[in-house]
């Protein structure tokens, strides 16, 4: 690399007294003082959540209100901090969603462990777990910081997903073999 010697400009007398610089600085800070504050005052003002924000992981239901999770436990497997804990369970055959066969008996996400990486959402084959806009999780005890299944569905709500994979399957079952 070529070395380019740059001569340093000697300071003028005024500069060496610091005073013009100090006055300049004071001018800047004074102007700044008269402008409104930039701070967002959090609980009253909320930031606009950008699209694809990764907030608290939640479970969602499909437009028909069926819980989408089939407890395949892939999220539990992929979760780097091991925050997810699922107890799989069987859906009774006579239930409306009996053809899905499997649903979580318990689904716990320990928000003290969760790192909001979004791998659970990425890995989910049923598109049942989403990191949504909720970013503020608080609690007084460790137990409170564990989101159970009910709370996860409450946070997640319903997502307008139009796949209806399992409904199609049920229709095929009722319709029989199309050969």
């Amino acid at each position: 690399m070529a070395v380019i010697p740059v001569s340093r400009k000697p300071l003028s007398f005024a500069e060496r007294t610091y005073i013009p610089q100090i006055l300049g600085g004071l001018k800047i800070t004074f102007k700044r003082m008269l402008k409104p504050a930039e701070t967002m005052e959090y609980p009253e003002q909320r930031p606009e959540i950008p699209k694809h924000y990764r907030g608290v992981p939640t479970l969602v239901k499909d437009p028909n209100g069926r819980e989408k999770c089939v407890s395949c436990q892939l999220c539990e497997f992929v979760c780097p901090p091991k925050a997810i804990r699922i107890t799989p369970g069987e859906i009774p055959l006579d239930a409306p969603t009996g053809h899905v066969e499997k649903a979580p008996q318990a689904f716990d996400i320990d928000m003290l462990r969760c790192i909001y990486c979004g791998l659970c959402q990425e890995v989910c084959p049923e598109e049942a777990i989403f990191l949504q806009n909720q970013y503020s999780m608080t609690g007084y005890t460790r137990a409170e910081m564990v989101n159970h299944k009910d709370r996860l569905y409450e946070l997640g709500g319903t997502l307008p997903d139009q796949h209806h994979k399992w409904d199609k399957k049920k229709a095929a079952e009722e319709h029989g073999n199309a050969h």
Partner: peptide, 10 residues
């Protein structure tokens, strides 16, 4: 307060 105002905070 003055430091806050100078720094654009409330």
């Amino acid at each position: 307060k003055i430091s806050a105002w100078i720094q654009g905070r409330p």
